[in-house]
């Protein structure tokens, strides 16, 4: 349906409120995705004997998840009450679900990373870390499995809102976020591991990038007018940058990544930056869509005038 040229609003004031979130939250999404997918890389590297890649991914996962906590807590209106997140377990709340996933994931990722750190200890102290290293394998696998949740639940967190451009993206956004997480983790792997160990990282990055770009295109096509904020303003710039960085990083990874370490690092950085830009761009687009009543009113009007179901297709 062609959107109506005009719509009615109350002095152009927004119907819904944009979230009070600032950069902390998209950063948290990016870091969560990076951590989750990195844990997968780490587990694979562990199983396939790529210690350098494993180390990079494990430490990267822990660093990312730790930073993500900082971002999450910093964003709270009452940071001292962060622990209230564990008062309840609510399947209706992606943030609650996510908190519990994180709560399960973090110790596992932490254990894996801690084990990795013990390998850096002086020789005579290596024994101390032996028990840790013994559980690090299973812990790493656990972290990898939970990492899938860590990397993808954030899309639900955004979509489970009345923010038009987030909610209307709900069919594809988990794929975009998961794929973007893969690209980021792959990028980190490419930076941290030598080329001979980084093959899976390159493949993960390239695959992730490809899926991300494809799903993003599909998402934009399915969102109706709420896709407009994805192309406009800061969000548009971020998402264009994201596409360019992700695309370039992926192509570089596939074509040259195995040969030049410098190129690999540059590609990895591009992929990381691209992944971050995706999260920031989509975040921004949603905020913008909430500020303009058009994106709330027009789709709802269309739904009503389309007759029938009050609730649109999923």
């Amino acid at each position: 349906m062609v959107p109506r040229a005009t719509f009615t609003s109350y002095y152009g004031r927004p119907v819904v409120k944009p979230s009070p979130w600032e950069a902390d939250i998209p950063a948290y999404f990016f870091l969560g995705g990076l951590a989750g997918a990195s844990s997968m890389l780490a587990a694979g590297a562990g199983v396939t004997g790529r210690p350098s890649l494993r180390r990079t991914a494990r430490l990267g996962a822990l660093a990312a998840i730790s930073a993500s906590y900082v971002a999450l807590i910093h964003d709270l209106g009452r940071p001292e009450r962060f622990m209230n997140m564990l008062r309840v377990a609510k399947p209706t709340s992606p943030m609650s679900v996510g908190t519990w996933i994180l709560t399960a994931y973090s110790p596992l990722a932490g254990a894996a990373a801690a084990a990795e750190m013990t390998t850096l200890l002086p020789q005579r102290l290596l024994g101390v870390g032996r028990p840790l290293r013994a559980v690090s394998g299973p812990a790493g696998v656990g972290a990898a499995v939970l990492g899938a949740g860590v990397a993808s639940y954030t899309a639900v967190l955004l979509s489970d809102t009345a923010t038009p451009s987030w909610h209307e993206a709900r069919r594809e956004l988990p794929f975009v976020f998961a794929a973007s997480a893969a690209a980021a983790a792959g990028g980190l792997g490419m930076i941290g591991a030598p080329a001979d160990q980084a093959g899976p990282a390159r493949r993960l990055a390239a695959g992730g990038a490809l899926v991300e770009l494809l799903m993003e295109r599909r998402m934009e096509a399915s969102m109706g007018i709420t896709a407009e904020p994805l192309h406009a303003g800061r969000a548009g710039r971020l998402l264009r940058a994201s596409k360019a960085l992700t695309g370039a990083g992926a192509i570089g990874a596939v074509v040259l990544g195995g040969r030049s370490r410098v190129v690999a690092v540059m590609c990895g950085a591009a992929l990381l930056a691209g992944s971050a830009a995706t999260r920031f761009g989509i975040f921004e687009a949603g905020q913008e869509s909430a500020r303009d009543p058009r994106y709330t009113v027009v789709p709802q009007r269309q739904r009503l005038e389309g007759g029938g179901a009050r609730v649109g297709r999923f």
Partner: peptide, 23 residues
């Protein structure tokens, strides 16, 4: 629409896991 979103996210998460394995 949350149940459907959870399902989509689950598919995406598993896809990511599969992709990582495939890598």
């Amino acid at each position: 629409e949350l149940p459907a979103m959870w399902r989509t996210a689950a598919v995406a998460g598993l896809g990511l896991l599969a992709g990582a394995a495939a890598a």
